[in-house]
Computed example of a mutant assay.
Amino acid sequence: MQTDQLDDFIALLTDVMAYYGKHTSSFMIDVWWGACQKFDYEQVAKAMQHHATDPDRGQFAPKVADIIRVLDGTTTDRAALAWGKVLDVMSRVGAYTDVVFDDPAIHAAVEDLGGWPKVCRTELKELSFLQHRFQEAHRAYTGRGQFDYPRRLAGDRSPDHDYERRGLPLPAPAVVGDQKRAALVYQGGGGTGKSNIHFVSLQVLGNGLLASPVRRLEAA
């Protein structure tokens, strides 16, 4: 959830607790927000409803652990759905086209797997292993909440500067899923999704002077 959804979240939590005859407090809201912020508002609302209708646990007011238990299952389902979306686009769009999904965790996970062209060219016998790696990465990023990711998954085409040098517009990417959410993904991206690598001397490393690297390499 984004910070601007805090009021909606407080209203949701207040309504849920009122259903059980409970009151909310500032401390309670802080604890719940800290635990649930990494999930989508819609996911949290559905998890609250799931708890309320649970024959065993639903007779008691939900604790944070109850909702997180439900949401952890939700992230597994979401990862499976995300893989299905990726698999579909791999066959329909292919390795040569830039792609912007409506889920930043897809961008981060695909980048971890070597990038869009490499994923698209995975041999059929390797798809099961690729699916496992993708879903593990997707769940990890979804659980983290905030992370760096590339704003688009670059296809196997000429680099941007070739188009700019010739005065040509960049090829239009394939936008997958909800266009408004995909636009937000594009606007919020920018990092490579990979860890920066720094080369420093042993003396600098030993002295803790990492603010003065000898040479720095950032994954492109």
Rank of each mutant, 00 (worst) to 15 (best):
D156R: 02
G143L: 08
V204G: 15
A65V: 10
P169F: 14
R216K: 14
G155D: 10
F27V: 12
M1F: 12
E111N: 11
D162W: 13
L124I: 08
A172D: 15
A18L: 00
L168M: 11
F129G: 09
H51T: 04
L127Y: 10
Y141Q: 05
Q146W: 06
S201E: 03
K22F: 07
T142Y: 06
N196W: 10
P62D: 03
A137G: 03
G188L: 05
Q2L: 04
R78I: 04
L124K: 09
P104T: 02
A61R: 00
S26L: 07
T192G: 15
K63Q: 12
L12G: 05
A82N: 08
S212P: 00
D98S: 05
S158A: 14
A61N: 01
D54S: 15
Y186C: 12
V16M: 05
G208A: 13
A65C: 03
G206C: 11
A80I: 08
Q37H: 13
D40K: 11
K125V: 09
L153I: 07
A220V: 12
E218H: 09
G208N: 13
A109T: 01
A219I: 14
S201F: 02
G114S: 04
Y41W: 06
S25Q: 12
A61W: 02
D178R: 06
K125Q: 10
A140W: 03
E218G: 09
C36V: 10
F129W: 05
C120W: 03
S195T: 06
K194T: 03
R57P: 00
V176T: 04
I67K: 00
Y149A: 08
E111R: 14
V31N: 15
M1E: 09
L170A: 06
A105C: 12
A211M: 12
Y186R: 13
G145H: 06
L6K: 06
Q37P: 01
P213M: 01
E111G: 04
P62H: 05
V99R: 00
M28W: 06
L81I: 06
R216P: 02
G177S: 10
G94N: 05
D30A: 15
Y149L: 09
V16Y: 02
A61Y: 03
A82R: 04
L168A: 07
L184Y: 08
V70F: 09
G155A: 12
V64K: 12
K85H: 08
V44P: 02
Y163S: 11
D102N: 13
D15N: 14
S91F: 07
C120M: 06
L13F: 15
V110M: 04
P171Q: 03
A137I: 00
R121Q: 13
G94T: 01
P62L: 04
A79E: 00
Y163N: 08
T142W: 07
R144Y: 14
A52T: 01
E123L: 12
S158P: 01
P171A: 03
A11T: 11
R133C: 05
I10A: 01
P117I: 01
